[in-house]
Structures are given as C-alpha cells and as structure tokens.
Design a protein around this nucleic acid. Structure first.
Lengths: 189, 189
DNA sequence: GGCAAAAACCTAAAGATATTAGGTTTTGTG
DNA sequence: CACAAAACCTAATATCTTTAGGTTTTTGCC
C-alpha cells in the first residue's frame, strides 16, 4: 500500500497546513510526517522545498482571483470597489497562511501566469465603473492593489493595535475614501 | 582578546547583513562566522534567534521613523504627503533587508514602543495640512500606512512586472491621487 | 599588585530541516 | 506473468538552533 503522493496532493496539503499553522511552518518534514512517508520520498514529486512554497503561493493567488472575480461579477462603481476590497480582506482573514503565501516573491515567468494577473484584471474591470482615462487605469490598479495588500497585512500583524477604533471601521471609511479618490482622480495636466 | 560581542553590536551587524543579503538569511550561524566565534557564544547576548530578528525589526522601524520625521519637518499639505510617501519608498529601496524586517509581526508590547508608533505620529502630523475631522485622522493614517507599505512591497516583489509603465510613474500618480483623496475625504454622514 | 567573581567565550551533544545518491518494493501493462 | 517504471526507502551530509556545563579573560576591589 502506497501513500499515493502527488505533486498536487502535497501542495494541497501544504496549503491546508499553512492556514492551520503558519506558512513558515510548512516544511517538507511536516508534510512527510503527515503522509507517513520519509522526507526523501517527497523529492520524487517536488524539486525542493521552494517548489512546495511556490506551489502553495500559486494556489493562493488562484483562490484569491476566484474571490475577486466573484466580487466584481454583477456589480459596478462603489459596490464593486467595496466587494473587491472585502474579497481581499476576507480572504486574508479566512486564510492567513494562504494570504502570506500569496505575497511570496515569484519568478517573473510564474508571476505572469499566476492568479495575480487575474486579480489585476478584475481590479481593472471594477474601474470601468469610474471615469478614469485609460492610461490612468494601470496606476489605479497598482494603488488599489497596494492598499488591499497593505491593509490586510497591517491589520493581521496587529499594527493597528489594541488602541484606537476598530480596524473594521477604518476599513469602511477607507473604502469610502478610495471611492472618493477614484471619482476625483487627478488628470495628468 | 575577546571578540567584544554585545547585543547591540550583534543586532547592528544583523541589520547590515539583512540589507547585504536578505533578512531570511540573517542567522545566528552567519553572525557567529562573521565575528569569528562559536554559535553558542551568541546566546550570552541574545535569548534566541527570534530575539535577533525582533531586534533588527526594531532598528528598522526606528530608522524608518527617523526618515519619516525628517520628511514631514518643515513641510505641509501635498509636499508633506509626497515627502512622507517617498521616505517610505526610498527606505524600502535603500534598505530591502530592513524593510522586510520592519514588517515582522511584533509582540504587542514591543510594537507599542517601536518606531512604528512614531511613523504613525508623523503621518498624523502630515494630515494637519488637510482638513480632516479629528476622528477621521486615525482612519487616514491607517489607509496611508497601508498604501506606503503595500506599494513598496509589491514594487520590490516584482508584482508590477516587466509589463506596463514604470512603477515610478504609478507612484507619482498615486501620490497625486492620495492628495485628492485627502482633500475630498468623505465625512461620515 | 593580586585575587575572587562575573562576564565572555568554548566544547560537546542533540534535535530539526533540506538535499543527494543509490537501493528496494509496488504496480500496471503488454 | 514478467518487467519496467514509478513509488518509496535507507543512508549520509550539511546547515541551523538550542541547551548544558566547562574554561578563560576581565574587572573591580582590597
């Protein structure tokens, strides 16, 4: 009776482990233990431990892209912005390990084929509800991506601390402010 | 002749190493090699390897806070916003290792005494140049912190890819958009 | 100056993880 | 059913972390 290891199963198990424990603690050793095999056996399916992490990152980006697509579907304008922002934040809260994985630095060729591209496309689609010059869209996409990533990161890391108002309130206000920003986007003179 | 190890010297050396190589590669072993001592000797000065990383993170936050303070000094309004934003971005580019360290999750008591608090104070000071209701300032501080962190992170990680316009241009436009956002900050009805 | 106590540094050992080389056992297919 | 490929294993090396318990340098005080 073999354990039935597979690249996909290993990465899927790693993804679960990341959320259950922490992305940093997803090791080949831990996976081998979980499957009841020797560590060396994993090397038939994964080139090295980095390949595991990269695989998890790609899974994470795909899932995030799915949420983003769902969020912008059938919505526009402020509704779409709020839904897209919440998709990011909710994902970070529901899947802390995957969210961390999604922030991994990926080799450019992989990044170009990752769900990250789809997230950017969804963000761009959302912007159709605002009146930006086409050339400005890419800048807005980057800025919004920065906010979505940054806010969830700071919130999860506890930087918003135990002082001051509920981060959720800041998030609501922040989304409104971003909506205002998009409506008043400065046109390059 | 002793090596003259000190908690401070070790952390300082670790900080340099982080920028020279990468934060993840700052290990007790590497430091011991550099100082020509046995690894175990470091434990007289640092409780464990986590203490080293935390120490570097605190150094990083302090340096960032220094830059932030310098940026907002003598400036206001859009000038202050741009200078503060650039302080973050320039710091991330000049000190990739420290910037990574600065994003470490810190235990709350430490975070509360870290340079991160000073960065928030400087951001709040910058907001005086805008017309926000006092109660909104904290939300704006959090949103701006998210952008500054997020943009530098995405830019450094290569997420802005080799396609599309220069990230520096997006940054310029982003700062203008943030300026517009602050000038049109939505007042909670 | 000399001498204890403290501080600095060392040796030794054990436990994790990652990786490679090469062997054995399943398993499915002709 | 035999055999080749795939799956999994043993063994060995290397790196990093941490603890326990020594030895040597420094330091400060008589």
């Amino acid at each position: 009776m073999r354990a039935g290891l597979t690249r996909e199963r290993l990465i899927a198990a790693g993804a679960e482990l990341a959320d259950a424990v922490a992305f940093e603690q997803v090791t080949l050793s831990a996976l081998a233990r979980q499957f009841g095999v020797q560590v060396a056996s994993l090397y038939s399916h994964l080139e090295n431990s980095e390949a595991l992490r990269v695989g998890i990152a790609l899974v994470a980006l795909d899932r995030l892209a799915d949420r983003a697509a769902e969020a912008v579907a059938g919505r526009s304008g402020r509704d779409a912005l709020v839904a897209l922002g919440n998709a990011h934040r909710d994902f970070a809260h529901a899947h802390p390990g995957l969210f961390t994985a999604a922030r991994m630095d990926l080799p450019p060729e992989l990044a170009a084929r990752s769900g990250g591209v789809r997230v950017a496309q969804m963000t761009r689609a959302m912007l159709r509800g605002y009146d930006l010059p086409e050339a400005e869209e890419v800048h807005a996409v980057r800025l919004l991506g920065s906010v979505f990533l940054g806010f969830a990161t700071l919130e999860r890391s506890g930087s918003f601390g135990h002082s001051g108002p509920d981060p959720g309130l800041s998030w609501q206000q922040g989304l409104s402010a971003l909506d205002a920003m998009l409506r008043h986007w400065p046109t390059a003179s």
